[in-house]
Design a protein around this nucleic acid. Structure first.
Lengths: 360, 360
DNA sequence: GTGAAAGCGCTAACAA
DNA sequence: TTGTTAGCGCTTTCAC
């Protein structure tokens, strides 16, 4: 065998000329075997003589060969990757969900292509289209927008799609949701049970599906208890400190101020906590507002008082969505499913603060 | 033009036969133009008659055509994607870093293929190799292992690699780090300045690069202040509640128990906080241990007392790493860089608790 | 302005 | 057990 042939990777080191990748053909030449034999060895297919296989492996090592999956994908049609579109990886809710999806993907020999939409429908669409162009086998989407007809061609081509946390706008797909209304309702009922009659709701912007659902649950609970709905106790806006602090200020100046709050997600909860901390001046100051937060968060138990929450299960959401996706990819063509995961009320103190005694 | 030709996507809807994707050739036939003209339109290349282009666009719409990037990648050599290997997306430190990388990638027209190594060198290697097989243009790695020679062929083939948070084991690459030793040193000096002489260190496992560096900074600070190093005040282990609670128990029973602690990362910090909460019984109980945590975390300011931290900048880490990566991809072949980001001490209360008055 | 031909690196189908 | 041939769907090159 003559090793001096002109081929990448020549020399003693397992390095090629800069920018040149050895191919299966190069390996085949180096090992003095046919092209397809290398393919067999690389993919662990049976029917290769042990000695031949060994020679091939040596050549692979020497040349620093690495299979080009782009070519493989093109030929086989499957990419062994799934796309994930969420709102923001830096948000613990989504990063936990992401981790669960990753875990399931790994178990199924798949990689995750992820991107954050930043709550922007245009960006969501771009991301999804890019992922489709990459021919991901399946897609898990937390939609920011409400129209998803643009997915029809891909659906028709056999791509599996699962929506999580929020439903698709106008197409029929598998959907995994949290029982938002029920959860919010349970939170308000908890406050009512502890004596509250004036309960505020600080939710996310009304474009967000979950925000609206939770508001609905909030109103249902009030109605069921025969309490009046008062729009001056409801705030639907982005979970940022300044507007939330302002609205709490405003509510506190009402003739009948709220004695308790339900928040719509953990960002809102944190914003409310910060507002109260700065107003109450920590421990002292005015009377304490009871608080139940939708969505759990780390350290909720270490705050004083501990923060009572309606806990969701982002990991479950991600796991179940991914498992369903891979079931679809494995050939399950049953009718599309809509699964709702129930919430869990975790009492830690803030939600059990009684209203101040009536004193004018 | 005859629309009744046998081709995918026939019919009124923009959907193909299940599992069949229209190709450029299909679009070309439907539009009655050449193959290459479609390519020009799809890629926005100049030199196409406006009317022709319009006909092509209509055909694309009607067939629900979507470019196959796998084929494109195969031909062009670049994938417009970068790989990211971290320890765990669900950890806020890494999810923030991830978000920053995503942001920069997006600005450079790239997608992020991410995976968590779960602190397992084998898994890290698997992930990296998979990403290399996918021919990501570049790679950002938070290494779990200490040997990275397996990357040599890819490096030689022109793949850009940047290591973040921890250096590579045995190859020469760009590296972005936090000034771990200096940061830890600053934390200990802060405690010394507040009167402490018996300061414990609760760090991560000694396999973790950052843990060792921070321990070094801790010891340097003690030495510089002429304080003795006492191994019974040092714990290096996984940041889980049970072992940490046990070791704090143990330390508190020493003849000269510590009056302050420096923790090695935010998980350790939280574990220490939980241990103290369960031992102190909240506000009352025994005397308070002063605490400085390495790495900031959400709500550190809302706890009582606020938690003093040596803050790192995960976003900066991710941003700078990604920017450097894309600079490399753009052709910057300068010598490999090692950048250290400084930390910032944020005093919030827990680190300013004085030691108890000598009375024992 | 447009199109035909070649080939990216691999796998599937079929010889030998 | 091994090798040969034909594409996967696109971009590149070059001819019209």
């Amino acid at each position: 065998m003559d090793d001096r042939e002109v081929s990448p990777g020549e020399g003693r080191q397992a390095v090629g000329v800069h920018g040149v990748r050895p191919t299966m053909k190069d390996v085949a030449e180096a090992a003095g075997v046919g092209f397809k034999t290398v393919s067999r060895v690389v993919n662990g297919e049976p029917g290769v003589n042990a000695a031949t296989a060994q020679r091939v492996r040596v050549a692979i090592e020497r040349l620093g060969y690495r299979r080009n999956d782009s070519a493989r994908v093109l030929r086989r049609g499957r990419t062994a990757s799934v796309g994930l579109v969420i709102e923001d990886v830096a948000d613990p809710f989504y990063s936990e969900l992401t981790r669960a999806v990753e875990e399931v993907a790994r178990a199924n020999g798949s990689l995750v292509l992820a991107g954050s939409s930043a709550e922007d429908p245009e960006r969501e669409r771009e991301l999804v289209q890019t992922l489709c162009a990459r021919r991901v086998d399946g897609l898990i989407v937390v939609p920011a927008g409400t129209s998803h007809e643009y997915l029809l061609p891909d659906l028709a081509a056999g791509m599996a799609v699962v929506f999580v946390d929020r439903p698709a706008g106008d197409i029929d797909t598998d959907t995994i949701l949290t029982a938002n209304a029920l959860g919010a309702r349970a939170g308000v009922e908890h406050l009512i049970r502890h004596g509250h009659r004036r309960i505020a709701f600080v939710g996310d912007a009304p474009q967000v599906f979950t925000a609206v659902e939770r508001e609905r649950g909030y109103r249902e609970a009030l109605a069921a208890a025969g309490l009046p709905a008062d729009d001056s106790l409801v705030f639907m806006g982005p979970p940022r400190l300044t507007p939330i602090r302002a609205v709490l200020e405003e509510m506190s100046r009402l003739a009948e101020p709220p004695t308790a709050v339900l928040t719509g997600n953990s960002r809102s909860t944190v914003a409310v906590l910060r507002s109260l901390a700065s107003v109450d001046g920590g421990a002292g100051g005015r009377r304490r507002l009871a608080l139940v937060g939708f969505d759990d968060f780390e350290l909720a138990d270490l705050l004083v008082p501990g923060v009572t929450v309606v806990a969701q299960e982002p990991r479950q959401l991600g796991r179940i969505a991914a498992e369903l996706l891979f079931r679809r990819l494995a050939g399950d063509h049953g009718p599309s499913q809509r699964i709702e995961l129930s919430t869990r009320l975790v009492a830690r103190g803030s939600g059990e603060i009684p209203p101040p005694v009536e004193s004018g």
